[in-house]
Simulated assay, not measured.
Amino acid sequence: MALDAQWAANWMRAGAAAMAENRQRLIDLDRDIGDADHGENMDRGFSAVVQKLDADGTPATPGDVLKLAAMTLMSKVGGAAGPLYGTAFLRASTAAGAAPELGPAAVAAMLAAARDGIVARGKAEPGDKTMVDAWTPAVEAARTAAAAQATGAGVLAAAANAANAGLAGTEPLTARKGRASYLGERSAGHLDPGAASTVLILQAAARTAEEAA
């Protein structure tokens, strides 16, 4: 099966399962340097995406699925995560366009558009200890994999692995954006919860793409 609308819907469902499974972990990470609501917000938001898919059925294209996710997350997720992930999926939807399937280059472009949307919305840069520290290496790895003729699933696997390394790299950083920045030097020594949820999202994308191959 190709990276089509059904894959995109499966990605959202796998993402919802990952958020439910990791809800407490994300809460704990956010409690360390934030307001402890990230896990609850992400779980609620992705559950709402699945409910929308169940109610309305799978849209026609991957881009349509991503747009559905964007609108749902924007309306259901509180805190900073809703606008950031909503913008990410909306930009990804625009990048995917009306294509019925996404090839490797399109997957890389979709991830880049998502990252660029987060940067535009949150004004964060690599090194600020935010989800951008997971998204940026993911985009770079995806582009490299696509250029090396990897499959779409391979591009997503490379992105997920790079995001996970980026997450680990947030631990020693001092936060310069968001609520964590209020802690100053005390924010060092903790993983960024937004980077952690980014990893879960990209791992879900890679896992469902591998199953679709």
Rank of each mutant, 00 (worst) to 15 (best):
A2W: 04
L3P: 09
L3D: 01
D4E: 01
A5R: 00
Q6V: 14
Q6K: 14
Q6A: 14
W7S: 06
A9K: 08
A9H: 10
A9T: 11
N10A: 15
N10G: 14
N10I: 05
W11A: 14
M12S: 07
M12I: 09
M12P: 00
M12Y: 02
M12L: 15
R13A: 08
R13F: 07
R13Y: 03
A14E: 10
A14Q: 09
A14M: 03
G15L: 11
G15E: 12
G15W: 07
A16V: 03
A16I: 10
A17E: 01
A18S: 07
E21S: 12
E21T: 12
E21G: 09
E21M: 09
N22Q: 14
N22E: 11
N22K: 14
N22I: 07
R23M: 08
R23S: 10
Q24P: 02
R25F: 06
R25I: 08
L26G: 06
L26N: 10
L26M: 09
L26Q: 09
L26R: 06
I27P: 01
I27F: 00
D28Q: 09
D28E: 15
D28P: 01
D28Y: 00
L29R: 08
L29Q: 07
L29N: 04
D30R: 00
R31V: 02
D32S: 13
D32Y: 04
I33N: 03
I33T: 04
I33F: 04
G34E: 10
D35Q: 04
A36R: 08
A36L: 07
D37S: 10
H38T: 11
H38F: 00
G39Y: 01
E40W: 02
E40C: 03
N41A: 08
N41Q: 05
N41E: 12
M42S: 08
M42H: 05
D43M: 10
D43A: 14
D43T: 08
R44P: 03
R44W: 04
G45R: 13
G45H: 12
G45I: 09
G45N: 14
F46V: 07
F46N: 06
F46E: 12
S47G: 14
A48S: 13
A48H: 03
V49W: 02
V50D: 12
V50F: 09
Q51T: 13
Q51S: 15
Q51E: 15
Q51W: 05
Q51L: 14
K52F: 03
L53D: 11
D54Y: 06
A55G: 12
D56Y: 03
D56W: 04
D56K: 11
D56V: 00
G57E: 10
G57W: 06
G57D: 11
T58P: 00
P59G: 07
A60L: 06
A60H: 00
A60D: 11
A60Y: 02
T61W: 04
T61L: 11
T61A: 10
T61G: 09
T61N: 06
T61I: 12
P62E: 05
P62W: 00
G63F: 04
G63P: 11
G63V: 09
D64Q: 06
D64W: 00
V65P: 03
V65F: 08
V65Q: 07
V65M: 11
L66V: 06
L66I: 07
K67D: 10
